[in-house]
Simulated scan of single mutants.
Amino acid sequence: MLYIGNHTTSSKGYKKMAQQMIKNGGNTFAFFTRNPRGGNAKAIDAKDVEEFLQLAGNHGFGKIVAHAPYTMNCCAAKEDLRDFARNTMADDLRRMEYTPGNYYNFHPGSHVGQGAEAGIQKIAEILNDVLTEEQTTTVLLETMAGKGSEVGRNFQEIRSILDLVEKDHKMGVCLDTCHVWDGGYDIVNDLDGVLKEFDQVIGLSRLKAVHLNDSMNGMGSHKDRHAKIGEGEIGLEALVRVIRHPALAEIPFILETPNDDAGWTREISVLREAFEKQ
């Protein structure tokens, strides 16, 4: 089974997001928990959630992937920014329990001159503050392209964060194809080798979701500019190998390509057709 969908907007409500995804040909989706630039989250409508869960069940949806706001920097140098990150993540994880058993993805953050080691420590501190034994949500660290002072620019930095998290069984990883390519991992010519390294450093059991994006830039560019599927430096054939790879079976693939619903519908159709030819 191929679980694929695109990133949509939570302002529509859960049911409308699922309805749009069905129109797009998808059976999973990602959404921001609140405005991607921060701010208060919209109140959750329990009836909307109930209707969504029924709709998702009827259409065989896979796990959905919530995305924290971009402004949430768990390793910021300023403590007020870290307080915002801590409070936002804690609130988001409480809200995620309306749709239990899904994923909450976030960018590890930027150390802004403190150094990666200090950034890693600070990210783990917030995770240790907010993770609870009762939560059913798995929190995903996203692999990053390495622009500026981003933490998570390689598998070892992700591993270093996980090593410091006390409730690490509540943690997983989201691999972004554009980010790892821009970060220097050759998923075009050596996908098996990249996944082997991921397994050796982090463990493939931690890999819970994939952001499926082409890249406007070459391998190792550290730029993080997404391209439409087949129109970038990674290319359609390599991305099809990603969705077909047996190590990645049954996990959600989320398109974050620069598109509208018509564009995502085309991409989902192309990828489904290619997947089913295997």
Rank of each mutant, 00 (worst) to 15 (best):
I126V: 14
H59A: 11
D261K: 11
K47N: 14
Y98G: 03
R95N: 08
M21L: 09
K63V: 03
M17Q: 11
N217F: 14
D192K: 06
I126D: 02
G113W: 13
Q19M: 15
I126W: 01
L212K: 04
H169V: 12
A249M: 09
L236F: 15
I4R: 03
A66I: 05
N217P: 01
D91S: 12
K170D: 10
L2D: 03
D168P: 00
T33G: 06
R95A: 11
L127F: 15
E134G: 07
V65E: 04
G220L: 14
D192W: 10
H245L: 01
Y185H: 01
T138A: 07
L175I: 09
Y104M: 15
H226M: 09
I4P: 02
I4K: 02
C178T: 07
M1Y: 13
R159G: 05
T265I: 10
N217M: 14
K147F: 12
K147Q: 15
S110T: 14
T136H: 04
G5T: 09
G183Q: 05
V139F: 05
Y185Q: 03
C75A: 06
D129H: 10
I254H: 06
G25Q: 06
G39E: 07
M171I: 10
L195A: 02
E50Q: 15
E273Q: 14
L212S: 02
E97P: 03
C178S: 10
R244V: 06
T9E: 11
R272D: 08
A118C: 08
C174V: 08
I187Y: 02
D80K: 12
H111R: 06
T8N: 03
H59F: 13
S110I: 05
R153Q: 10
Q200H: 13
E237P: 00
V201C: 01
K47I: 15
N73E: 11
V194P: 00
D91Q: 13
N128V: 14
L164S: 05
S269W: 09
Q20N: 15
A18C: 12
L140R: 03
N189A: 05
R225N: 14
I158P: 00
D214E: 12
A77R: 10
G57A: 06
D92R: 03
V180T: 02
M96T: 06
E150D: 13
T132R: 11
K42R: 15
H7C: 09
E142G: 03
V194Q: 00
D190H: 12
A56D: 07
L55Y: 03
Q54H: 11
H7V: 05
V240P: 00
H179D: 06
I158A: 04
V201N: 02
L55N: 10
K78V: 08
E79P: 00
K78D: 04
E50F: 09
K12D: 13
